[in-house]
Design a protein around this nucleic acid. Sequence first.
RNA 1: GGUCCUGUAGCUCAACUGGAUAGAGCAACUGCCUUCUAAGCAGUAGGUUUCAGGUUCGAGUCCUGACAGGAUCACCA
Length: 596
Amino acid sequence: MNIENQILVDIQKAFEVLFNHPVSLDELALQPTRKEFEGNYTFVMFPYSKMTKKAPEAGAEALGAYLLTHSDIISGYNVVKGFLNLSVSDSQWLDIFRSLLENTDPLKLPSNGQRVMVEYSSPNTNKPLHLGHMRNIFLGYALAEIMKAAGYEVIKANLINDRGIHICKSMVAYLHHGQEETPETAGIKGDHLVGKYYVIFDKAYKKEIQQLMDQGISEEQAKKEAPLILEAQQMLRKWEANDAETVSLWKTMNGWVYAGFESTYRKMGVDFDRYYYESDTYLLGKDIVEEGLQKGVFFKKENGSVWVDLSDEGLDEKLVLRGDGTSVYITQDMGTCDLKYADYKINKSVYVVGNEQDYHFDVLFKIMRKLGRPYGDGLFHLSYGMVDLPSGKMKSREGTVVDADELMAEMVATAEAHTKELGKIDGFSEKEAHLLYEQLGMGALKYFLLKVDPKKRMLFNPQESIEFQGNTGPFIQYSHARISAILRKADQIGVDYTQSGFGQLTGMADVEQSLVKMLFEYEKKIVQAADEMTPSILAQYLYDVAKEYNRFYAELPIFSEKDSSQQAFRVALSFQVAKTIRWGMQLLGIDVPERM
RNA sequence: GGUCCUGUAGCUCAACUGGAUAGAGCAACUGCCUUCUAAGCAGUAGGUUUCAGGUUCGAGUCCUGACAGGAUCACCA
């Protein structure tokens, strides 16, 4: 049942009857009535005064009167200036509530026949994951889950950047200083171990540059000629030539990193359906260059380099293949773009990548469209802003990053300390308590990163950012735990909170109606979050629901309520809120506890 | 310099896509645990939505121009 649509249809009818002026449905829109006014939905009359030939206020009055008598849904109305506030009857809301209550499985809309790939995480294998990656990973996971719920078939992909000069840097450093060290002998997670050598390389490299500069060589020159960088480049050539020893070391070190990443992903509670490796894909795309030349989309310059001219689309000329015939970044991206389609015949392809690559994806997508790809219009860059620290931007080479593993451990520890301080773990086993700390710590962290509009840059202050009160994950989790306690008691004393238990209910309090209305909007929020690829819409909604529930909880009694229909309804309402919170939080990758 | 993104309470963020008196949280202050979990609820205070124009019945939202912050503009990835 879609109540808004029904009202709009009635309004449409009214326009014909009252004003003798037919309108199409998409010319009409409702908005929620502001709190300070009476009503549920508001129809704004101002835009229609020309077609109604009436002043907005008079038109609204006429429309309201018409709806009151001709619409089954509308139980009252009032007009303030040109705003027509419509009230929906309690019995309508109750009908809606009953149908919501019936659903026992997490909301999943019928298939829309669309298949989408969401690529996220996509790490380099030369350093461990940090806070910036976490925003990416939680966003990507949540978006994928939300799109599933909205009726898409979703493939989660991770394109691992496992080759290239940066990987060789770690390898060179390891050869010089590694002395057979392994994650086991060093007692360090594999990704951290490899990251350690990346830092060692960078330090030594900088030192060499300085030495060369001291000898009077320019910085630019020094960067190119330092022995270490030459060695790394040499190693890259050997890797590309498939040199056995080099490939073996590469495999070993990458193996360490993958083991480390897997453990981090597991802690994060995220997963992937498909891994792509750049070592498999980096040669792709050259045939597309050829195709583009033939189609006249690309052109060749004198030195043999191949370009695309996007100046008609407001961009510049862009290189797609070097003069020596080797690939650049975008060459292989064109190749993987096609590969994904060949593998899954996807309608949409979403790239969760930071906003520093806005231009790159703009170019890539325009090229694929110019090449006439069938999926061209389904390409989408979910661009998110950087996570800054109070000290400024995170720089992995300068060690000013917040490490993902460390942060998660700290979050869990903080959750533990906080919970113990509140003395809330009576009757918990050791295992249950630890699970709770993890749920709370991770919930706080994930919610913190997901509640903000992705495209905005955000500030992370290690001391203050993640809290447990107010607009936070734990607040929502707490609301769920509270309801769970109520349901336990209701079951214990035998309250029938199925539909038949509140069959005699006659009316609702304001908070109750407002809660029903919010619960009804869950589906709409899922669709909106999926359409706009913005998980924060769902996060914000869940907070609003929890907040409203806590108001209900404080204002109305449940077990001391004497009217059994009232009591049953309030338990049922609580039950439905808990379900909605649980489902929604699950889409965000956040677990909710039964007790806390 | 060109292009793109952002600018809302002291701080972190909302504002249903142009609607009514711009809302939450944190921090501060005041109440509420003998009643279902106080990680909660209610209240007070906090705003020229960076600035200046424009569009219209109506602008935080749209257009123009400043200002501030950021990103990007490699035969790097």
